[in-house]
Write a protein that binds this DNA or RNA. Structure first.
Lengths: 153, 153
DNA sequence: GCGGTTAGTGGGTAAAAGTGGGTAATTTAG
DNA sequence: CTAAATTACCCACTTTTACCCACTAACCGC
């Protein structure tokens, strides 16, 4: 079993790719496969994450579920409005090119502080896109948080 | 390599294998057998352990149970998110083949501090993967902890 | 111990993933 | 409406990984 490990049915695994000078990054092949296999789509929504300095990528189906939930909430609630402004307004729809890359605009890059080395982290039904350095830091603090936890799973 | 036992029904025993320069390590044969016999699968998920500097390997069935539990919890809970970022994002799926090896990427190697000599420790329904030196230390402290304990089993 | 058999290790080579860059098409600005 | 800028698309190159083979070491029955 000399394989690197394909990401399973959904988004799993951590991959680092470089953004080139044009602002393009390669979506890791396992994630592209997962999109096809589990969702039968090629479409990807990328938007600001609401609570962390990273981007979040959704298969169309997951994105629509999120929108549906939002729609069911009072439209002028302060939090809902803030979420729409921060997240929904930033959402872009991608169809990765033949090389599997997407072009991330400057505004989104800024939010995640992405310079060049970019981490893709699978969280099962979505995946996150981080600047490599920022990812390392948050990973360390995630592990620290878990350390004191009485995990029931 | 340490002693080779008979294939136990589940994951049991401690085995030491060497990682080669390409980053490949052999999964001990008894564990591969156990996967087949007890789970009727060939699929193995390897991920960071949440609380110790080691990796944890799950049969697909066990991994899915974990994901199911996770899915039932509030997705934005801090601990749940941290767990997803630390563990789920690191999960890789491996399909056994003739040689029985897996390629462990650098990020996972780092988390477990694996250099070359690698210990596989069976914990019944999962098994752990340690750097040999780290394993010895944790073993000593596990035994020390048990020393003062009033064991009810 | 002795040979047969299975587990573990090392390495070469197709193939696939990732990267860089040029040109055509599209959009934006003047 | 035209020119500049941006984006999409395509091709070629580099690096990494998967797969295969062969070799060595350990185990098992005799």
């Amino acid at each position: 079993m000399v394989e690197r490990g394909k990401a399973a049915s959904m988004f799993q695994g951590e991959f680092t790719n470089n953004m080139d000078e044009k602002g393009r990054v390669n979506i890791p092949a396992p994630f592209r496969d997962a999109l096809q296999k589990s969702y039968n789509e090629g479409t990807l929504i990328v938007a600001r994450d609401a609570q962390s300095p990273c981007l979040r990528a959704y298969p169309l189906r997951e994105w629509n579920r999120l929108l549906a939930k939002l729609g069911a909430m009072p439209a002028n609630d302060r939090v809902v409005l803030a979420f729409k402004r921060a997240v929904v307004s930033s959402a872009l729809e991608y169809q990765p090119d033949k090389q599997g890359r997407i072009l991330i605009p400057q505004t989104l890059r800024n939010h995640a502080g992405i310079l060049k080395s970019t981490v893709f982290a699978g969280l099962n039904d979505t995946f996150e896109i981080w600047d490599a350095l920022a990812w390392e830091k948050q990973l360390a603090s995630s592990l620290a948080l878990l350390q004191d936890q009485d995990l029931s799973f």
